[in-house]
Nucleic acid binder design. Structure first.
Length: 595
RNA sequence: GGUCCCGUAGCUCAGCUGGAUAGAGCAGCUGACUUCUAAUCAGCAGGCCACAGGUUCGAAUCCUGUCGGGAUCACCA
């Protein structure tokens, strides 16, 4: 059910006032400024008003002082726009107070709107690629940031009305997996993940480590620059693989299958899934086809040794190799091919690649190449680049064993929460199963929020101790606001969306502040979709929770002064719960009803 | 060396399409539970927004330069 006719969202109210203001500016001062060029910002707490227009920009053309301009425009709005109830001018700031009906309308309309803050279908189809691991070792903390960003962006784009296809490109071929295969063949004696009682990806990772130990061992006795025999064997295996050798292929499939089973467990525990998988083993060859095509069109050129290049120096990039002299693919070849295949498969308008910022240059080049190849989707290519995750002790280094394993991490955060709840003695009257689900939601909530609240672009420090904090700016703090709301609603025996109609308007400052923050939700959803930035939504959710906790602390809901106030507070609480659950849901974080 | 990203409280981060006195959390100190869940709230303390110029009514935010940190510039992925 959509909004009732008379109910408007706050952003529509603002648009309307902007139109009126634009008219006023032209009538009073004869200046023409389109409504969407006016800046409206929520009025700062220390001043009276709901939204503020900055009038400095018009003072020159209006040939009047900022205060005069503010006064005259304010008067005009008061007279001509029913949404404006009062105004005041401080220096060059025109603070507008909305008609209380605007706010009541927001509350009743928002409660009725099943998908508050969402946008209708845009008809755009967007692919989001994330995770994209190698198949030789388990996922780690770095992948978690990637996965959470990809998942969250997908949800946000969907909520903004786009059709989203979540995908990844699995690096399932190459020397790395051959190394695991070789070590398994030499050392395993037929051991499997089942007999070893290990997750498949960890199991294969174990043999990758074993291979590296073997290689290190052999290197010791060798002169500088000479290749250890295991490395030659691994290369030989890769050659056989490329020749489609039956045994090699069978072994490869067996190990990869184990790995995928392991990955899927990790994805499940994180609560993510994909719509479509791509594998490099299937896309690395077709890539060459597009190189041929580009060569014919003169986008690429061939050197004497047969290697194929592109010259991007005119756009301040380098000469880039796109096909080796022996005719085999490089990374770039594959990515060109994969993009084309995906376009043909999915018909997407836009492709978002969630990949670490060490590949910024690679994607700059890739996008330029696709543009020159005339790809119809080339305007919709976006590299969602994110910074590395460091530990308080510095970088994660596999050689030093400081890499944080994804599965261990998830288990640890849940365990921390479990321990904490035991100490507190909460949830004692809740069934074991339900308890576990709550711990899982809280643990993952803490972890996910900790990572997603940081702007993707920035490198971040992952402090394991802080990631399971439950106080302050954390996931559980936000979840706690939701839990409090559910508890109140349960006691009030409200278990369906309220039909809030009362034209009550004597709001306490904290109530007004909360409402004002809630009203910003649609704009925040839109903005974080446009900038592909879940951190904006994360920080906003915290603002909502904080405002609610304050309100909850100072004002009694069930024992409110009058029935009217009580109903308003219940409606306000329900609306808050809705925004919190939706917003956190877009981050991939689930809310518990109790904690 | 070229190019790109980052630099805000002791620590971790917001704020960056220019707007009012730069905000949170953690850590430290102080106070509030016969409760609608204290996993909460209130208070104290903590800042030359790396530095220097510029643009303008106005700069943490935009531009230039310097310094510091990181990434990248493979016939690796």
């Amino acid at each position: 059910m959509r909004l009732a006719k008379n109910a408007m969202t706050i952003s529509k109210t603002i648009d309307q006032i902007a139109q009126t203001a634009s008219l006023g500016l032209s009538e009073i001062f004869g200046i023409s400024i389109p409504g969407d060029k006016l800046t409206f910002s929520p009025t700062r707490k220390e001043f009276a008003g709901d939204y503020t227009i900055v009038v400095f920009p018009f003072t020159r053309d209006a040939k009047k002082s900022p205060v005069q301009v503010g006064e005259e425009l304010g008067k005009y709005l008061l007279d001509n726009d029913p949404a404006v109830e009062a105004y005041n001018v401080v220096k060059g700031f025109l603070n507008l107070s909305f008609n209380p009906e605007v706010w009541s309308g927001f509350l009743s309309g928002g409660l009725k709107d099943e998908k508050f803050g969402s946008s209708g279908p845009t008809g755009r189809k967007i692919m989001v690629e994330f995770s994209s691991p190698n198949t030789n070792k388990p996922l780690h903390l770095g992948h978690i940031r990637n996965i959470l960003l990809g998942w969250s962006c997908s949800r946000i784009l969907e909520y903004n009305g786009h059709e989203v296809i979540k995908t990844q490109i699995v690096n399932d071929r190459g020397i790395h997996i051959c190394k695991s295969m070789l070590a398994w063949k030499k050392l395993a004696n037929g051991e499997t993940p089942e007999t070893a009682e290990m997750k498949g990806d960890h199991f294969v990772g174990k043999y990758y480590v074993a291979y590296n130990n073997l290689e290190k061992e052999q290197k010791k006795g060798l002169p500088e620059g000479e290749e250890p025999t295991v490395l030659s064997e691994a290369r030989e295996m890769l050659r056989k693989w490329e020749e489609n050798d039956t045994d090699t292929r069978a072994l490869w499939e067996k190990l990869n299958k184990w790995v995928y089973r392991g990955f899927n467990e990790t994805y499940n525990s994180l609560g993510v899934e994909f719509d479509k998988m791509y594998y490099e083993s299937q896309t690395y060859i077709p890539g060459k086809k597009y190189i041929e095509k580009g060569l014919e069109e003169g986008v690429f050129y061939k050197k004497e040794d047969g290697s194929v290049w592109i010259d991007l120096e005119d756009v301040k990039m380098d000469q880039k190799l796109v096909l080796r002299s022996d005719g085999t693919s490089v990374y770039m070849t594959q990515d060109i091919g994969t993009a084309q295949i995906r376009y043909e498969d999915l018909g997407v308008d836009q492709m978002v690649y969630v990949v670490g910022d060490e590949q910024d240059y690679h994607f700059k080049v890739l996008f330029e190449i696709l543009k020159r190849l005339g790809a119809p989707y080339s305007d919709g290519l976006f590299h969602l680049s994110y910074g590395m995750v460091d530990l308080p002790t510095g970088k994660m280094k596999s050689r030093e064993g400081t890499v944080v394993d994804a599965d261990d991490l998830v288990e640890e955060v849940v365990e921390e929460i479990r321990k904490n709840a035991k100490e507190r003695g909460t949830l004692v009257d809740v069934k074991k199963e339900e308890q576990e689900e709550i711990f899982r939601r809280l643990g993952l909530g803490a972890l996910k929020y900790f990572i997603l609240k940081v702007n993707p672009q920035k490198r971040m420090v992952f402090n394991p101790a802080e990631s399971v904090d439950i106080q302050g700016n954390t996931g559980p703090y936000i979840q706690n606001a939701f839990v409090r709301i559910q508890s109140v609603l349960r006691k009030a025996e409200i278990n369906a969306p309220m039909n809030y109609q009362t034209a009550f308007s004597k709001w306490e400052p904290l109530e007004k502040e909360l409402m004002s923050i809630l009203a910003q939700f649609p704009a925040v959803v839109k903005q974080s979709g446009e900038s592909l930035d879940p951190s904006a939504l994360a920080n906003y959710s915290y603002e909502v929770a904080r405002a609610y906790h304050k309100f909850y602390h100072d004002h009694s809901i069930l024992n409110a002064e009058t029935a009217e106030v009580k109903e308003f507070r219940l409606a306000l609480s329900q609306m808050t719960g809705k925004v919190l659950e939706t917003g956190m849901g877009l981050l991939g974080i689930q809310m518990p009803d109790k904690m």
